[in-house]
C-alpha cells in the first residue's frame, strides 16, 4: 500500500490547485496515486470532523443500550455497518421480537444514496485497483465523501484520501459508541454544542467548491426543487437519491441540446 503509482509529472497539479480554473472538468489528466501521504492527509483532515461525528456515536450508543443491545452488540454494529443515520434508525425500530426484514430493508434504503455518491467518485477512484476502490468505499460516509470530493476537485489525485478519512471516522465512531453504551443516559444532548450543524456546514463549504459557473445553476435548481418536494412527500431519505437522479437525468436530456 505504500507504493505510489505516479504519472509522468506527479506534482504538476499542485501548482494550479489554488486557481479555480478548468482542472476539475478534466480529472483524467491528473495522475491518481494511492499512498501514505494521501492516507495521512485524509486522516488528519477528517479528525476535527470525526470528533463532531463522535457526538452522534455517543447518541447511538445510548439509544442502542436503551433498545436492549449489549455493549458488544452495539460496538459490533458500529464496526461492521458503519452508517450513522441507518444505525440510529435501526435501533429506533429495534423491538422484541426483532423485526429482521424491516431492519435490513430500511438499512438498505437509507444507505442507497451512497451508491450515487460512490459513482460520483469514479473519475478518480476508477483508476485504482478494485481492492483499493471497494475497501475505500466500505469506509465511506457523508462527511468523508464531501472532503474527498473537495480534495479530488482541487487537483490532488491522492486516491487514499477517502480511506484515510474513513479510518478517522471509523475509529471515532466505534470508540464513541462504546462510550455511549457504557455511559447510558448521563450524557447531555450533543446538539447543544452545535454538533448537528457540522454535517450541514461541511456540505455548505462543498457548495462553494463545486460551484462551476452558470452551467451549474440548472441542475442545482432541479436538485433543490425535487429534494425539497420529495422530503415533504416521502418518508426516509429518498429525497437525496431523487434530487441527484433528476438533476443527472436533466443533464442527460440536455446534452448536445
Amino acid at each position: 500500500m505504500e507504493q505510489t503509482q505516479r504519472g509522468e509529472s506527479p506534482r504538476e497539479s499542485d501548482a494550479t490547485s489554488g486557481e479555480r480554473g478548468e482542472e476539475p472538468t478534466e480529472p483524467e489528466s491528473e495522475p491518481v496515486t494511492f499512498g501514505l501521504s494521501g492516507l495521512r492527509a485524509g486522516f488528519l483532515t477528517c479528525v476535527p470532523i470525526a470528533f463532531g461525528v463522535a457526538g452522534y456515536g455517543v447518541a447511538f450508543g445510548v439509544l442502542a443500550s436503551q433498545a436492549g443491545l449489549s455493549v458488544a452488540e452495539a460496538t459490533l454494529m458500529s464496526a461492521t455497518v458503519f452508517a450513522g443515520a441507518a444505525q440510529i434508525i435501526a435501533v429506533e425500530l429495534w423491538t422484541e421480537p426483532i423485526p429482521i426484514a424491516a431492519l435490513v430493508v430500511t438499512t438498505f434504503a437509507v444507505n442507497l444514496r451512497y451508491s450515487l455518491m460512490g459513482a460520483a467518485l469514479q473519475p478518480w477512484l476508477g483508476r485504482l485497483s478494485p481492492t483499493k476502490i471497494y475497501s475505500s468505499l466500505c469506509l465511506m460516509a457523508d462527511e468523508n465523501w464531501a472532503l474527498t470530493m473537495r480534495e479530488f476537485r482541487a487537483g490532488n489525485g491522492r486516491g487514499a484520501f477517502l480511506l484515510g478519512s474513513g479510518i478517522a471516522l471509523w475509529l471515532f465512531w466505534v470508540v464513541s459508541t462504546i462510550l455511549g453504551t457504557v455511559a447510558g443516559g448521563s450524557v447531555g444532548d450533543p446538539n447543544r454544542y452545535g454538533v448537528d450543524f457540522i454535517l450541514v456546514a461541511v456540505f455548505v463549504a462543498l457548495v462553494v467548491e463545486l460551484w462551476d459557473g452558470r452551467s451549474t445553476l440548472a441542475p442545482w435548481i432541479v436538485a433543490l426543487a425535487t429534494s425539497v418536494v420529495a422530503a415533504e412527500l416521502l418518508s426516509g431519505q429518498w429525497y437525496i437519491l431523487l434530487g441527484g437522479l433528476t438533476a443527472a437525468l436533466l443533464e442527460v436530456i440536455r446534452h448536445d441540446g
Binding site: A146, R153, A223, L224
Partner: peptide
C-alpha cells in the same frame, strides 16, 4: 458530472 453538486444540494435543501 453534475451528480456531486446535485447530491450536495439535495442533502442541503431539505
Amino acid at each position: 458530472d453534475v451528480l456531486p453538486g446535485a447530491i450536495v444540494i439535495a442533502i442541503l435543501g431539505p
